[in-house]
Design a protein around this nucleic acid. Structure first.
Length: 199
DNA sequence: TCATTAAAGTTAT
DNA sequence: ATAACTTTAATGA
């Protein structure tokens, strides 16, 4: 289920456009808005002091961005939200968002679902980060992604991430990620077509 | 074993 | 065109 554009607009949402690489909100900003992606993809990340990127999540059309921080008093965003493609977002003020949740319990339930989904993903990622084998890290991530798909046929799912993105999500370097993916291909755990991973 | 560096080829913007 | 991504290979922790 998604929260309909029409409903958000009726609630007073602002439509925003972002170019690829533009920042939607930054680490340490105070959360004041609810964001939902109408079109495009957004990443949540941090940069460590050596400049290396820690990718926390990649969000797409229909998903909301950073809503979990809106429910906590006196916190700042722990991540940056950056457009990775040209994006259209709808934005509600925190106040508009709260009113919507009070007036529409089904929307409130949907937000619960999304935050739970996010937490679930974070728990999977927690396990992945503690796993030593690069192959199992990649496999666990692919398994999680595949589980969200309707079609569970082997090799029916084209992974929507680049090698670089998989690496930054799992904490591996790209080269190791590439090798792990190649090994998985040899073991017939996945297929590669036109450089895309089919799982 | 995996990260890092370098170098070259490929794809996307 | 130029930057971003993919791949291979060598080296070192």
């Amino acid at each position: 289920m998604i929260i309909h554009e029409k409903l958000l607009e009726a609630t007073g949402a602002t439509r925003l456009q972002f170019d690829s690489r533009e920042t939607i909100f930054a680490e340490n900003d105070i959360p004041r808005f609810y964001y939902q992606i109408v079109m495009g993809r957004v990443k949540l990340n941090n940069y460590c002091e050596d400049g290396k990127e820690i990718l926390q999540h990649i969000l797409e059309e229909g998903q909301s961005v950073g809503e979990s921080s809106l429910f906590i008093e006196n916190v700042v965003y722990p991540v940056n939200a950056i457009a990775i493609t040209p994006c259209t977002l709808l934005r509600l003020t925190q106040c508009q968002f709260y009113n919507l949740l009070i007036e529409k319990p089904e929307i409130s339930m949907e937000i619960n679902r999304r935050i739970s989904e996010f937490l679930y993903f974070k728990q999977i990622m927690g396990q992945i980060l503690c796993t030593h084998s690069p192959l199992f890290k990649i496999k666990a991530l692919l398994d999680y992604l595949k589980n969200n798909q309707e079609n569970r046929e082997p090799f029916s799912f084209q992974i929507p991430f680049t090698r670089q993105e998989l690496a930054n999500l799992t904490g591996l370097c790209v080269e190791t990620t590439i090798r792990a993916v190649k090994t998985m291909e040899k073991k017939h755990l996945l297929k590669i077509r036109h450089r895309k991973i089919l799982y």
